[in-house]
Simulated assay, not measured.
Amino acid sequence: MALKSTRYRKVEPAALNRRATPRHTMAISSASLKRNGNKSIPATLLDISIYGCRFEVDAVFKEGEKVTVTVDEHAPVIATMVWQKTKQVGCRFVDALDTAVLRSLTISG
């Protein structure tokens, strides 16, 4: 049952974004994820911030698993898998990403 004050007007969903820093949307297909000692797994970088990123990848990861993230010619970054839903995974960088690297990725993406 609707409240009297909202019965006749459309109520928009709440815009809840609890992130400390904004995520930058992109689609960079030259990314890869690497488990310890294994070969690189091709991935597409979907969004990124200085603290983490989201990929589309054809592989299964476990929560808490450590991976090495490589995008384009940038230096590899160590990250921890936080979640996976179908073909998308989210990871958090062990050390915050350098802002110059983030800037170059967002400009090229």
Rank of each mutant, 00 (worst) to 15 (best):
45 L>T: 00
55 F>N: 02
66 K>P: 08
63 E>T: 12
40 S>H: 15
32 S>W: 12
46 L>I: 05
33 L>A: 06
40 S>V: 04
26 M>S: 05
25 T>Q: 15
29 S>H: 13
47 D>N: 14
69 V>I: 09
45 L>V: 01
58 D>Q: 09
70 T>M: 09
42 P>H: 01
46 L>S: 06
35 R>Y: 15
43 A>H: 02
42 P>G: 02
42 P>L: 04
25 T>W: 11
30 S>Q: 11
35 R>D: 05
54 R>Q: 08
24 H>D: 03
56 E>F: 04
70 T>P: 03
34 K>T: 15
70 T>I: 12
55 F>D: 00
36 N>H: 15
57 V>Y: 04
31 A>I: 00
63 E>H: 14
43 A>N: 00
27 A>D: 08
40 S>G: 07
24 H>W: 14
66 K>L: 08
30 S>Y: 08
39 K>E: 10
54 R>K: 14
59 A>G: 08
26 M>N: 03
33 L>T: 06
48 I>N: 11
36 N>L: 15
58 D>I: 06
54 R>E: 01
58 D>T: 07
36 N>P: 15
69 V>H: 12
39 K>H: 10
33 L>G: 10
24 H>Q: 06
45 L>M: 10
27 A>C: 12
52 G>N: 07
60 V>M: 13
46 L>D: 04
54 R>H: 09
53 C>I: 02
25 T>H: 14
40 S>Q: 13
26 M>V: 07
42 P>K: 00
38 N>Q: 15
38 N>R: 15
50 I>R: 15
52 G>W: 13
32 S>I: 02
30 S>R: 12
49 S>W: 03
44 T>N: 05
55 F>K: 05
68 T>P: 00
58 D>Y: 06
34 K>Q: 15
68 T>Y: 12
56 E>P: 01
64 G>A: 03
62 K>A: 12
60 V>P: 09
26 M>D: 06
41 I>V: 10
56 E>Q: 15
58 D>F: 14
64 G>P: 11
70 T>E: 07
58 D>P: 09
50 I>Q: 12
50 I>D: 05
57 V>F: 06
67 V>K: 10
30 S>I: 04
58 D>S: 11
55 F>Y: 10
43 A>W: 02
39 K>M: 07
45 L>H: 07
53 C>H: 00
47 D>G: 01
69 V>L: 13
34 K>H: 07
65 E>I: 06
54 R>Y: 09
44 T>P: 05
44 T>E: 03
